[in-house]
Simulated scan of single mutants.
Amino acid sequence: MEELNWFVDTLENEFQVKMDRRQISYEGNELYLDEIDESLIPSEMFDSLPESLLFETMLYEDDIKTEWLGVIALHPKTNEWCLQVILKDGVVVLRKKAD
């Protein structure tokens, strides 16, 4: 799974978090833009996004109980990546449009 690889690589390379992939939980959901919390995706980023997004979310809790949440927002028709987000204990520490 490409999204899981991104999550593991980003935590290891950007935040020096080593993990066991078997301890990562993940799920997928589709949300319309008006259902998305603005702390996750600010409304000023909505201009270039479709009406809804598919979210692949990955959750990992490290040895010191820090909760890491990775989010890939995908276009619902093409499955192209639109956004990448990492939260550390509920605070966004990385947010960028996908290349």
Rank of each mutant, 00 (worst) to 15 (best):
I86G: 01
M1S: 15
A73F: 02
K18M: 09
A98I: 10
D47H: 03
G70H: 02
N79S: 05
W81G: 09
S48H: 13
D20H: 09
V85L: 11
L53D: 00
M1W: 15
D63C: 06
F15H: 07
V71R: 07
I72H: 05
L59M: 07
V92N: 02
Y32D: 09
L33A: 03
E27V: 04
E2A: 13
T66F: 14
I64E: 05
K97D: 01
A98N: 09
K65N: 13
L33V: 11
E14D: 15
S52F: 12
K65I: 07
I72N: 00
V17I: 13
L53F: 07
E12S: 02
L59Q: 04
L4K: 12
R95S: 03
Y60Q: 00
E14R: 15
S52M: 13
I64T: 07
G70V: 03
S39G: 12
L69G: 03
F55P: 02
K88V: 04
V92A: 04
M19D: 01
D9S: 13
V92Y: 04
E30H: 06
P50T: 09
E35L: 13
F46V: 02
D37Q: 11
L4S: 10
L59G: 00
K97H: 06
Y60G: 00
S25R: 05
D47P: 01
V8Y: 05
L49A: 10
D34I: 10
Q16I: 11
I86S: 05
E12R: 03
I72F: 06
A98F: 13
E35G: 10
G90D: 09
W81S: 09
